[in-house]
Simulated assay, not measured.
Amino acid sequence: MASSKPPTILEKIYAQRQLDVDVAKATPGTRPDELKEYLSMNLAPKLIALVPRLKRNPSTSTSNPSLSLMAEIKRASPSKGEIAMTVNPAKQALIYARSGASVISVLTEPTWFKGSLLDMRLVRQAVDELGENRPAILRKEFIFEEYQIDEARLFGADTVLLIVAMLKQEQLERLYAHSVSLGMEPLVEVNNAAEMQRALDLGSKVIGVNNRNLHDFNVDMGTTSRLVDMVRERDVILCALSGISGPQDVKTYQEQAVNAVLVGEALMRAKDTAVFIRELLAWPEA
């Protein structure tokens, strides 16, 4: 008998994205074989490596280095609704880049987050003027097929998000391997100890702990703190994702040896984004 339990938010998003991807794959110009051919023609933009870029920020040359910043372009979300619907992603990305962000995360999911691949391509084009100093570009998406990773590479991403909670282990391993084969070390997202172990078994070099449970979208800022010990003494960059809103959050995670924070809503709502970033991370003035 089928379960009468209603789908979680993550399950709803996953189901919709499967429909969206089926449409894209059937559309002339974006069929899977066409994306493969574009990649084989070396039409994808030049990559930068995620791991070394995450280890560099405006404070790394000082005596008291801070965490690195993954700054997010986020118009809306399932939990908060509209956040910044009139944002210009390219302009916002330049503010993030010039303020010292190591990574710019771009949500490309259209239904709940109001994002697109075009947003990501324009973000990438905007920061290209910074050359080797530009931030890495993350495709923040609900990825379940190699096709979406090919899309990400062609549209200018340096890395993609793989969410352990929505992937079977075989899927996770296959998608991780495909991303790495294209030169993109993925950000692997976890929410509990079991998922963290799966990410470690995978050999992930960059692991993000989402303080927001994607099934019910509740936030628990202690989620990252509880999982820190699992990566201690390992060659893993640990990132805290979701819920970070002020300097105290960053200070707490820094004391726990977290390496980076991903911040979206607070940056999108900030009156002066550059000042907010500097105060959030306790970075020196540029």
Rank of each mutant, 00 (worst) to 15 (best):
G156V: 05
N133Q: 14
R134P: 01
R124H: 11
V190T: 06
I163Q: 00
F155E: 00
E129V: 15
A126P: 00
Q171V: 11
E173A: 15
D128R: 15
F142T: 00
A157D: 02
Y176K: 08
G131S: 09
R134N: 09
Q125L: 12
D158P: 02
E145R: 11
I149H: 03
A152Q: 01
V123L: 08
E170G: 09
R139P: 02
Q169C: 10
Q197N: 15
Q169L: 12
I143M: 09
L167G: 00
Q125P: 04
G131M: 05
A136C: 15
V190H: 02
L167E: 00
F155W: 10
L130H: 07
R153P: 02
L187K: 00
L187H: 03
K168D: 14
R124C: 05
I143A: 02
R153K: 13
A194P: 06
D150T: 10
P135D: 12
I149Q: 01
Q197F: 11
A152F: 02
R134C: 08
Q169H: 12
G131N: 06
L154A: 11
G183W: 08
A165V: 08
E129R: 14
A177T: 12
L167F: 05
K168M: 14
E146H: 14
Q197R: 15
G183T: 09
I149S: 01
Q171E: 14
L167I: 08
L122W: 07
D150P: 02
E195N: 13
G156W: 01
Q171R: 11
I143E: 03
V180W: 06
E170R: 09
T159Q: 07
Q171N: 14
E170H: 12
I149L: 05
E145A: 10
M184G: 04
D128E: 15
D158I: 04
L175I: 11
I137Y: 01
R174T: 12
L175F: 06
E151H: 08
V127P: 00
N192D: 12
S181H: 13
V127E: 00
P135T: 13
D158H: 06
